[in-house]
Amino acid sequence: MAAAAAGTRVFLEVRRRLQSALLILGEPKEGGMPMDISLAPCSLRVKTPEGCTELQLPAEVRLVPSSCRGLQYVPGDGLHLRVQVQAEPDDTKLISVFNQSSQAQGCCTFYCQSCGEVVIRNRKLLRVLPLPSENWGALVEEWCCHPDPFADKPLHPQENDCFIGDSFFLVNLRSDLWQPRPELAPVETHCPSSENHFKLKPKANTKVICKRCKVMLGETMSSETTKFYITEIIIQPSERNFSIIPRSQFVQNVIAQCLVELSSARSTFRFTIQGHDGKVYILLWLLNSDSLVIESLGSSKSIKKFPLLEDTLKADSSSAWNAVKVLYQPCIKNRNENHLWSLASTSR
């Protein structure tokens, strides 16, 4: 087929469950140029007077060229075209991003993800156990006809335990391992008296800060238990060398897999991201969790339409990534607009 456009970039989103794909050719330059698009079962080719771009598909994906339909130009985006595919289901077993390295085998080392600083060295994990959901206490009250038997028995890990929540690890820190030292921080508290005045009273600071880069890694829950956030900590077997992953790539992988796991386990697709103060910063609506994104990057001067994938793609090659697609709405002043957002997933 032929169309008037000057795409420098090819983007293909394959839906495994629907056996369909959306092809997007990047925003054309002003005036456009002749373009020939050729589809084959295992490849896609775009020819322009400036050159030829060919996109090779993964072995598990095959296009059905005769099914092409819905060609249209979307201003600000480019040419859109839908086509049927024959895509094998992703039968790779989903390994939890929270415990993929926290297996109860051998010794593990906890690292700060931002700078690679060792947080806990050579910890023997005998038990790696998932925690119940956040509202499990309320459910117990509904199930029991007598007072909650677990009210006075909080779930705290023992010396060689690692408990895993939706967004954190709980670890019991022994005195001979690195552990945070709470600092005294002045806070204002109201003193009831005939004179309305404020008085400084010391309060323990429970923040756990990286010694090297000063990033907040978590918080102390008790004298022995520490909570580490999954976006700040990497756990690796002690005998394995640690390599720093780009920050934005690591965070998007963690969030993407968290959405996949929670949507599968709890049959939900709406989420919120909150700060340490409980304030909601962003609303997420999971659209697709079965997407395979295939993209061929064109000229480095081209407009980047999918910036969140830039960290994982090489400028001189085409790449395929399992991804989730979400609709998000920032809860920040003057930014309450809907956006589409793709996140690379680590389910492979």
Results as ranks from 00 to 15, higher is better:
S102Y: 02
L79H: 05
Q113R: 15
I37G: 11
G78S: 00
T92M: 10
M35W: 02
G106A: 01
L25P: 03
P34D: 09
L25D: 04
E13H: 03
S96R: 04
S96H: 04
R9G: 08
V10W: 11
Q19D: 07
T48M: 13
Y73T: 01
L18N: 11
L39R: 00
Q100K: 08
S38I: 13
D90H: 14
D90Y: 12
H80R: 03
T53A: 15
R9A: 03
S66R: 05
S20C: 15
S66V: 06
E30P: 05
V10F: 10
Q105P: 03
K47C: 14
R45P: 05
S38F: 10
T109F: 06
L55W: 04
G26F: 02
E60P: 00
K47T: 13
V64L: 10
G32R: 03
C115E: 13
L25G: 06
L44H: 07
R17N: 10
K47Q: 15
P28M: 06
E30M: 10
A104D: 02
C108S: 12
R16S: 15
A3P: 04
C108D: 10
G32V: 00
L23V: 09
C112K: 11
N99Y: 04
S43K: 09
P65Q: 02
L55C: 04
L81C: 08
E54Y: 00
V74W: 01
Q86T: 14
P89S: 09
L63P: 02
Q72K: 12
K29A: 13
G7C: 12
A5M: 09
Q56D: 07
L39I: 06
S38L: 14
P34W: 03
R9P: 00
V14Y: 07
G32F: 04
F98E: 06
M35T: 12
L63C: 00
Q56K: 07
D36T: 13
L71V: 14
G106N: 05
V14R: 05
T48C: 08
R16L: 12
E50F: 11
L81I: 09
Y111H: 15
V85N: 06
L22P: 09
R45A: 14
P89I: 11
P65R: 00
G7R: 02
E60L: 02
D36R: 11
G51K: 01
A59K: 10
G76V: 01
V61R: 02
D90I: 12
I95R: 13
C108A: 13
E60I: 03
G106D: 05
M35V: 10
Q113A: 15
M33R: 13
L23I: 10
A4L: 15
Y73W: 06
Y111T: 12
C115K: 13
E50Y: 14
P89E: 13
L63W: 00
S43G: 07
S96G: 08
V83K: 03
S67R: 01
P58G: 00
V85F: 03
C112R: 06
A40R: 10
V83N: 02
F11R: 13
L79Y: 00
L94I: 12
V97R: 13
P89K: 09
T8P: 07
L63G: 01
V14K: 07
I24E: 08
Q84C: 14
P34S: 03
A40D: 07
Q103N: 05
G26P: 04
E88H: 15
C107Y: 13
Q19I: 08
A3E: 05
P75Y: 00
Q105G: 03
L79Q: 01
A4T: 15
